[in-house]
């Protein structure tokens, strides 16, 4: 190596290298958002099983409690899963905070800009921040409850909570907030990292946006139907509130729930 090159390296070494954290945090935000969104899809399948039958929902609940592996129920397993999701949720919310308007000035600058621009993706971001903010409270309430009452899941137990304990209000708000936020988030993930970009980014973006709205509308419809099913069971079951569901075939075997 000649001396000029060595001199350059020394000069470079004196300047501190840029931190790698902005890159890591950006990736962590996207990965945590992706995992949460995928979990929410799974979650929708689990709760919507009530639309198939009470037995189907009971079976899925028991699956998570390890009943079919250990021969008895361990609701603690549910608590562990909830704790993991809660951790992911806190991480994601913490990272998202960096993107929130930091003060009223930024908030109003963005608002004015958005109204003038009439640009869909800019407006969607506003809704993502708004729903994200709502999720701070709504999802925290739900997650905390499930963390501390992991055994209280089942066709009757859940329906009694939805109707008897008025949780339907929380769940209705949660449904809209999560589906809007998750849908916009997944779309943004795709354009942000350029996945599915293909040869014609504009055309794939139009397709992504159409897919995003289709999925969101479908999931909100499915969620409303599911919630209605729990409300119906909850109303019917109100006189025996607190009683747990046990499928007929388990009663024959002499099992319990």
């Amino acid at each position: 190596m000649n001396s000029t090159h060595a001199g350059m390296l020394a000069a470079d070494a004196i300047r501190p290298r840029a931190s790698r954290w902005p890159a890591r945090l950006d990736v962590a935000q996207s990965v945590s958002g992706l995992l949460l969104a995928l979990f929410m899809w799974g979650h929708m399948v689990f709760v919507a099983s009530i639309l198939v039958s009470k037995d189907a929902m009971w079976t899925i609940t028991k699956l998570f409690e390890g009943y079919f592996v250990f021969g008895e129920s361990y609701p603690g397993i549910v608590s562990v899963i909830v704790a993991l999701v809660f951790g992911l949720f806190i991480l994601h919310a913490g990272l998202a905070l960096r993107k929130f308007p930091a003060n009223y000035r930024q908030y109003s600058l963005f608002g004015r800009h958005m109204r003038g621009m009439r640009h869909e993706d800019t407006t969607l971001w506003y809704w993502q921040v708004l729903t994200g903010f709502a999720l701070f409270f709504l999802a925290s309430a739900h997650l905390w409850w499930m963390l501390t009452h992991p055994g209280m899941i089942g066709p009757y137990a859940s329906a009694d909570r939805v109707w008897g304990d008025h949780f339907w209000i929380l769940y209705l708000l949660l449904l809209f907030a999560v589906e809007l936020h998750g849908g916009i988030g997944l779309y943004r993930l795709a354009v942000k990292w350029g996945v599915f970009e293909g040869k014609d980014p504009a055309a794939s973006r139009r397709r992504l946006r159409a897919a995003k709205w289709t999925i969101t509308v479908f999931l909100i419809a499915l969620g409303l139907a599911t919630l209605a099913a729990y409300v119906k069971i909850g109303i019917e079951h109100a006189p025996q509130r607190g009683e747990r569901y046990t499928p007929a075939w388990v009663q024959h075997e002499g099992g319990e729930s």
């Binding site: 840029a18 790698r20 902005p22 945090l25 993107k99 800019t122 942000k192």
Partner: peptide, 18 residues
């Protein structure tokens, strides 16, 4: 990365695509 790898650079973009 030294020039653009920060929250005022590419990681600050929120992908609004306007």
């Amino acid at each position: 990365y030294e020039l653009l790898g920060n929250d005022d650079g590419v990681f600050g973009c929120m992908s609004l695509l306007a």
